[in-house]
């Protein structure tokens, strides 16, 4: 089984995690830039973090045979802090980098006018840099936050097929399913979504445009819950092709829209990873 975790904060994880992930088949990850738990106080704190996501972390991942890409943004939790907002002016420089496959995480935390502004500006940056967008939905007041997210996405003019709306659940998935946006689900040990609940959602909504991630970070989380969800799918009667679609082909299709997804390290080792659907197009290294 091959697994692509489309949302995981490896900066907060140990090398033991990398070793366990590689052994379990988690061979590709995307690390969205986010909040560190401790609030940042200046733009330089962001740029050092972005440098790490594009320098040290992919290097660390490669030691274990895991391919690492990143998404770059001013995250929703800090978008309301005037000390942090100037980082928006530094983003264009980072959005041009090779291993940046989306603008994200952007979106709402508390749905303030300041968050509206940062969200709007960063959707415009996604369009300008020809990148998909990874959108976080708020933990509090989630349904209203998801509706407002979708309104802002629609108004921005970005192609909905290039937007992933993340951290959905049973209540919010229906709001997104008809919009053309991708639907992201974060499987957590206690909160957000569990493997059995995820399987039930897949049964109702199908596997199309669904992304399943561990969103593992510095909190209570588990980078192998993608694998556990895959096994729960098989136990519930989904076949291996369904699992491969959700756990590998879907995230590859979503992020390949950036033109910067580079899985050549894996395809060299295992030619079957070169999907006919994508071979010769944007996932190839050096592809235009």
């Amino acid at each position: 089984m091959r697994i692509f975790d489309p949302h995981i904060h490896m900066t907060s994880r140990t090398t033991d995690d990398y070793a366990r992930m590689a052994a379990a088949g988690v061979l590709a990850v995307v690390e969205p830039s986010f909040w560190l738990g401790q609030p940042r106080t200046n733009p330089g704190s962001f740029t050092d973090y972005f440098d790490s996501l594009l320098g040290w972390e992919p290097y660390r991942a490669a030691q274990f045979g895991v391919v690492h890409h990143a998404t770059i943004a001013l995250n929703p939790k800090e978008a309301g802090d005037p000390r942090c907002v100037p980082v928006l002016d530094l983003l264009p420089r980072y959005l041009d980098k090779d291993r940046v496959v989306a603008v994200g995480e952007i979106g709402y935390d508390s749905m303030t006018p300041e968050e509206d502004d940062a969200f709007e500006r960063q959707l415009a940056l996604a369009v300008e840099h020809d990148l998909p967008a990874l959108v976080h939905t708020p933990h509090r007041d989630k349904a209203r936050g998801t509706r407002r997210t979708l309104e802002l996405v629609a108004a921005s003019g970005i192609d909905p097929g290039r937007v992933a709306v993340d951290h959905l659940n049973e209540v919010t998935v229906g709001l997104v399913s008809g919009t053309g946006c991708w639907m992201g689900f974060s499987i957590y040990p206690e909160t957000k979504m569990s493997p059995p609940r995820m399987v039930e959602i897949l049964r109702r909504h199908g596997t199309e445009r669904v992304l399943v991630n561990s969103a593992a970070d510095w909190g209570v989380s588990d980078p192998l819950l993608t694998l556990e969800t895959a096994n729960a799918m098989l136990a519930a009667g989904f076949d291996e092709d369904d699992v491969d679609r959700v756990m590998w082909r879907n995230p590859v299709e979503f992020y390949a829209q950036s033109g910067r997804l580079d899985l050549t390290g894996l395809t060299a080792a295992e030619p079957s990873f070169a999907e006919p659907t994508f071979a010769g197009s944007s996932i190839k290294r050096g592809g235009e």
Binding site: Y59, A62, Q63, F64, G65, V67, G265, L266
Partner: peptide
């Protein structure tokens, strides 16, 4: 990290690793 990633763990995927 206070300690180098031991290159003996696994060779990096990209040829530029060593």
């Amino acid at each position: 990290m206070n300690r180098p990633v031991e290159p003996s763990v696994k060779p990096p995927m990209r040829s530029s690793g060593t």
